[in-house]
Amino acid sequence: MSNIISFIQGIIVNVTIVAWVIFFLTWVIGWAIRGLPIPFMRIKRTGERFIEDAVWAAFWLAMGTTVFALIAYIANTFYQPLPAPPTI
């Protein structure tokens, strides 16, 4: 069982690293497309959207641990033992 857990943890770490790398790549590609000296606004808008997506994704990537910590905190806070049912 612990093998599977560490395997998944490894994947998560790899995915995170790849995600950061891709963030920089997307950031660069996005700016490169946006800054192209061409008059095609559609292509330029694609570059703009790349930058936008990459920034948002970077934000959620940075917030990842926080998000799950928050879920754990909320679930534990809201799990209060319910009152005993009324007895006749």
């Binding site: 069982m1 612990s2 857990i5 998944i8 995915v15 994704a57 959620w60 990537l61």
Partner: peptide, 24 residues
């Protein structure tokens, strides 16, 4: 163990989502 695996799978799903979000 199953619960822990499930948790890590959901974390993995989240990061995969972020990764796909970033793809250029």
């Amino acid at each position: 163990d199953v619960i822990v695996i499930a948790y890590y799978l959901s974390v993995l799903g989240y990061y995969l989502g972020v990764l796909i979000y970033m793809l250029p």
